[in-house]
């Protein structure tokens, strides 16, 4: 296999502070994503997962600022790119879907038009040429009645359908990397499974790598080949998915996995509760600061 698709080195994100050092949200994050791989980033809310993903796209809002680091994509550093060349990559080579399908679409524009935009932006098509392509893209994400839905407005669609529209949009140009930031968190469980299957199927077919961000260990276990565990803005453990779930090394990961409820067990039966996790783990202790970053292809 050739080198990684995206190589992130020492990514540090923070809020600049006039009187003193910046407040760091993400510290010295390093990992790589291989072509076609599904890489999971798991962690509690506030751990810096989304900020890292948005930093790769150059989409963090002030005051969040990328302070240090590199994200090498095809020999170019995404974090140091001009806005113009970044715009060319966005949506075309690297695309993104978000947690909230209800608000992520423009409420005043028709679905078809919002997808057609991708072809107008990145394939140089006219609007009339892009229209049928948008319908095709809707059909590819298994939206029933794609012609009709292309004429609909977002408020006329359910949350699950809207997320499919987002996926259709993100996959329209056959990107190298799809960043999916909690893509199923806002959906109900039955729809979640379908949407995940759809993402995996499309990406396998188009050879697109996925950076899947979730706080849901079940989703990560089901989807990913490799997993990074983040807490407090740091990557604590980076392992093959199977290895991580069978043999967690970091006390935080161990606590997290131990707190997973099992079907038929009671919360009190020997298993930890998530509420205890915070107290059980001393985040200032030296063993929390340790990281377990295993090279690719470790034995399970």
């Amino acid at each position: 296999m050739s080198g990684p698709l995206l190589d992130i080195r020492g990514l540090t994100i923070g809020i600049p502070n006039r009187s003193g050092p910046p407040v760091q949200i993400v510290r010295d994050l390093s990992f790589d994503i291989l072509p076609g791989e599904i890489f999971g980033l798991v962690g509690e809310s506030g751990s810096g997962k989304s900020a890292s993903a948005l930093a790769l796209m150059g989409l963090n809002r002030r005051p969040l600022t990328t302070l240090r680091g590199q994200a090498l994509y095809g020999g170019q550093d995404l974090l140091a790119m001009s806005r113009r060349s970044m715009r060319k990559l966005r949506g075309d080579r690297i695309s993104m879907i978000f947690q909230e399908p209800m608000s992520a679409l423009n409420p005043l524009a028709r679905i078809g038009r919002q997808i057609a935009e991708m072809f107008v932006l990145h394939r140089g098509l006219s609007w009339s040429e892009a229209g049928p392509k948008a319908v095709e893209a809707l059909a590819a994400v298994q939206v029933p009645d794609p012609e009709g839905r292309a004429r609909a407005y977002p408020h006329q669609l359910s949350g699950g359908l809207r997320q499919r529209v987002m996926i259709a949009m993100a996959m329209a140009c056959g990107p190298d990397l799809l960043i999916a930031d909690e893509p199923t968190t806002a959906l109900d469980v039955t729809v979640q499974a379908e949407v995940l299957r759809l993402i995996r199927g499309l990406c396998e077919r188009q050879g697109t790598a996925v950076l899947l961000i979730s706080h849901d260990l079940g989703v990560i276990a089901q989807m990913c080949q490799r997993v990074g565990v983040m807490a407090n803005g740091r990557l604590l453990e980076l392992r093959d998915a199977k290895a991580l779930f069978t043999d967690p090394r970091h006390p935080y990961t161990q606590g997290l996995l131990a707190a997973l409820p099992r079907l038929g067990s009671r919360a009190t039966e020997g298993r930890h509760r998530l509420a205890d996790l915070d107290m059980a783990i001393d985040r200032d202790a030296p063993d929390f600061a340790a990281t377990y970053l295993c090279p690719r292809g470790e034995a399970a």
Binding site: N106, L121, M169
Partner: peptide, 26 residues
């Protein structure tokens, strides 16, 4: 400040395209 503008940026629109397609009417 709304979410769909972030989507528009993630799609790779230029500031002018974003304003024309996603801001004016809204």
């Amino acid at each position: 400040g709304s979410d769909h503008i972030r989507t528009a940026m993630a799609k790779g629109t230029s500031p002018a395209q974003m304003i024309r397609w996603h801001v004016l009417r809204n």
